[in-house]
Amino acid sequence: MRTQVIKKIDFSEQNLYIGLDVHKKSWQVTVLSEAICLKTFTSPPEPNSLFHFMECNFPGASYYSAYEAGFSGYATHRQLNALGIENIVVNPADIPRRDKDSHYKTDKSDSRMIAEALRAGLLKGIYVFDPESEGFRGLFRSRLALAKDIRRTKGRIKGFLAFKSISIPGEFIRNPKSSKYLNWLKGLDFQFPTARIQLDQLINNLLFLMEQRRMLEQKLRDTARKRDRHLFKILQTVPGIGPITAIGIMAEIGEIGRFKHFKQFASYVGLVPRLHQSGEKDQTGSITYRSNNYLRPLLIESAWQAVRADPAMLKYYQENCLKGNAKKAIVKVARKLLSKIMHVMRNRVKYERGIA
């Protein structure tokens, strides 16, 4: 009687590249070897399920995966790495795309593009915060969301008053945060009680949001001091940088050592111009659209304060105003301010005003 010999498939010493198109209810997965496409399938949105599939179908291989940064955050990234799948999270704008992919886009084509770019070595992972730093950053962004809700509520109150043809006194236009303004709103008389109820609802919403922001800001200050009291203090020596902006810088940047040079730092924040070079022509355009959407607006706002507080910054601003318009000049001031911030963070020294 002959004995049947079953030869087990072995992918040892092979590299497999996994492109993940991550969604809430499912993942589209493409698996490539060095030469061919091995499998394209739909997987449950669980790292353990993907790892089990790879171990059963392609045992012994080295697994490399990538997915786009988005709603899923970094939890999936950490779980994949813990299971032995070497994963990176990539900026969606950095994935090479063919022209036809913009006209015929599917989850399958997206996962394959990611896998192909990963295999070709064209992808570079973004910086992944540790869980504690990620929580700190999330807390700061929650504060920004609250501030946005407060502005919207104030706008609704102004819209309500305009609809009722009620003019806001000049003193309150200049200082809408004052308690006198709220008292004035509460003292308004209306012909029908429904209008009073509507305005009171808006005022209560505003007061609630402002209290939530106050409590959140206190927690942010406490967290910043606990994480790095000295850095939190010296950042506020930079003109235009207050406690909230200092917290934003700490939360959004994390470790300053991850930037090798200032140009890389400025590119991350989004304070670099667009550049188009062809042959002997070099065209410098407006500010890049790629930026940290939370940090860049704070730096621009801080730049306006810096020109009022620091003579060196004022001089730099005036010199650039002569070359172009004020908006371009203030962006240059913000870039210069960013270089000062990098110096303060790297050397952990106070900012000295009046030094060009």
Results as ranks from 00 to 15, higher is better:
T40H: 04
R119M: 13
E252G: 06
S167E: 11
A93C: 11
T288D: 15
K7V: 13
C37W: 02
C37I: 11
D101M: 13
S109I: 11
I287N: 09
R119Q: 13
G242Y: 02
R335P: 02
Q277G: 09
K158L: 10
G70T: 08
N81F: 02
P169T: 00
L299Q: 02
Q218T: 09
V89F: 02
A75P: 13
R174Q: 12
S339G: 05
S65A: 15
G19D: 04
Y351C: 06
M113I: 13
H230C: 06
M210G: 11
Q318D: 08
K219D: 15
L123V: 04
E13V: 09
L209N: 09
M54K: 02
P239W: 11
H77I: 01
A266E: 10
L322N: 11
R258F: 03
P47A: 05
Y351E: 07
T153M: 07
G125Y: 05
Y127A: 10
N347Q: 08
N325S: 07
S291G: 08
L118C: 10
F265T: 00
I9V: 11
M113S: 15
L298G: 05
Y74H: 11
K219H: 12
E301D: 15
F163T: 02
L38R: 05
K164C: 04
T153C: 10
E68I: 06
N320W: 07
V5I: 14
M113A: 15
N183W: 06
D222C: 05
H276T: 06
F58L: 07
I18S: 00
R97K: 13
R229H: 15
P169L: 05
I244E: 10
G19R: 00
R78N: 10
L299I: 06
G270F: 00
V269S: 03
D310P: 00
G285R: 05
Y351R: 03
F190N: 12
G155Q: 09
K233P: 00
E55D: 09
A195I: 12
L235C: 03
K158T: 12
I247S: 08
G135F: 01
Y64F: 15
G73A: 03
R156D: 13
L202H: 03
Q283S: 14
G135E: 11
G324K: 12
K108C: 09
V31A: 02
K100I: 14
A69Y: 03
L337F: 01
I114C: 07
C321P: 12
S165V: 06
P243L: 07
V5H: 14
I234F: 14
L38F: 07
L295Y: 07
V90G: 02
R335I: 07
P273V: 12
V128Y: 00
G135M: 05
C321N: 14
Y64T: 10
R258T: 01
R290F: 12
P239E: 13
G121E: 09
Y351L: 08
K154L: 10
